[in-house]
Design a binder for these strands. Structure first.
Lengths: 193, 193
DNA sequence: AGATAACTGACGAACGTTCGTTAAAGAGGT
DNA sequence: ACCTCTTTAACGAACGTTCGTCAGTTATCT
């Protein structure tokens, strides 16, 4: 399908240069066609962008949901650290998460509404799942916390900090050191010892 | 000074729309002049951008350095939490930190070199200071950690996660909850108890 | 099977608009 | 008169978008 090729190229340039910085001629040239031909597949730049956005959202959401349904949920230390590694993995081998990060941080103003909806949707779902897991682990005395919300937010914070390091992306060694440090302090912060 | 007004407007639009999305005519109109007049004060868009960048960097760096030299360094819990509040404060009442965040995350490709230099400079200085502080606190048995690097990186992670929440910026309540959660878990992670 | 009609995808050309930039002319203050 | 700043005017280039066209494929009907 040609429209998939276009979306693939669009994803690349939107990720590198942002919405305003990416041009249809660039994208078309990358596919091997003229920019006018894009209009045979998409209604315009906004339509192309929103479809790329939707695909990226689906990929990210399903990846995370799949992870949570694959774990047995009885080993928080392994399960949580595994999630951090999943995020790193997704980011490094999947262009879509980079795109997702960029445009959720700094959306083009005239599409903010559409983007926010998708962002909030993922956010709520992941947060809900995490909160349930933490509650189970607290009930099973596997971790210690004043309420399930605390470790949930704190863990989401660790995820965010890893994402920032991935966005900077210049230093693999530094990434692993920050992952290690954040994880160790976080785990000590919620575990018995 | 008129060039300050121009930089102020430029800062605003660069922050909202990014480098590519901000136009000189927008900026000029905001100041109340024609875009061509900008060239009496700056060599061009890049020059304007880089000067705004430099100012933002100076502001952010000096704010943080000033904070570290103002604390007495004997109460890590207060000093560290105070730094988090400083970051929130800077972000909320200072346009320059928002600008700094956006362009350090996603710099315009042709200026990446110049930007990276400034970013790394701040990063190294703040990290160096923090590492020294943590070492002192470890020596004084005020906190516990395997090495000074661990709490340093972990704390920088907490800062980053707060910054992300500030970038999303839609929910003050959520920000405070994430701050509270990340901080509590972090502090439990490095303190005796 | 063969002719005809409809659809698909890509194209060159051009639209109006905006971009960053340069040059020359005019205004204001010292 | 000189310098600083602003304006008007104009530039080539690029932007997203629309148009008409045309080759190639697919579907329909006799």
């Amino acid at each position: 399908m040609k429209s998939d090729e276009i979306k693939e190229a669009a994803l690349k340039f939107f990720t590198i240069h942002g919405y305003e910085g990416a041009s249809l001629s660039q994208i078309a040239e990358d596919v091997g066609m003229k920019k006018q031909s894009i209009y045979a597949h998409f209604k315009g730049k906004d339509d192309l962008f929103l479809q790329v956005l939707h695909d990226a959202k689906e990929t990210e959401l399903s990846s995370k949901l799949e992870y949570f349904s694959s774990i047995d949920s009885s080993h928080p230390e392994k399960d949580l650290y595994g999630f951090l590694q999943l995020v790193i993995d997704l980011f490094q081998k999947n262009e879509q998460l980079k795109f997702w990060l960029r445009i959720s941080f700094f959306p083009p103003a005239h599409l903010q509404k559409d983007i926010d909806m998708e962002v909030i949707d993922i956010e709520e779902k992941v947060q809900g799942i995490l909160e349930n897991k933490f509650q189970e682990w607290m009930d099973a005395k596997l971790i210690i916390a004043p309420s399930a919300k605390i470790p949930t937010y704190a863990f989401l914070g660790v995820v965010d900090s890893i994402l920032i390091e991935l966005v900077y992306g210049n230093d693999e060694h530094r990434l692993l050191e920050k992952l290690n440090a954040s994880w160790r302090v976080f785990w000590r912060g919620i575990s018995h010892h």
